[in-house]
Amino acid sequence: MATKAFTLDDLKRILKEAAGVAEGVDLDGDILDTEFEVLGYESLALLEAGSLIERECGISLDEEAVNDAHTPRTFIDVVNMQLAPATAA
């Protein structure tokens, strides 16, 4: 099964569903390298987002890698890293 790459738009959609948007935060701005903490998302929000992604994409995310992903760019990389072998298989 071909899997499309996980994009920033995917992540924004998932974050909104999993944890909402904090007051004064614009997810449509240039946020790719903004720390999640600045965007108002703590570790539990990212855990919940990761859980949604796992269900939607049928993958299992590396917990440590998710913990170390502090920005949307690094988080998206972690997801795509897991998607790649799933795509290959």
């Binding site: 569903e17 909402g20 904090a22 539990l44």
Partner: peptide, 8 residues
């Protein structure tokens, strides 16, 4: 309340 609060 902001949407950030609602899912939790």
């Amino acid at each position: 309340l902001p949407s950030r609060i609602l899912p939790q």
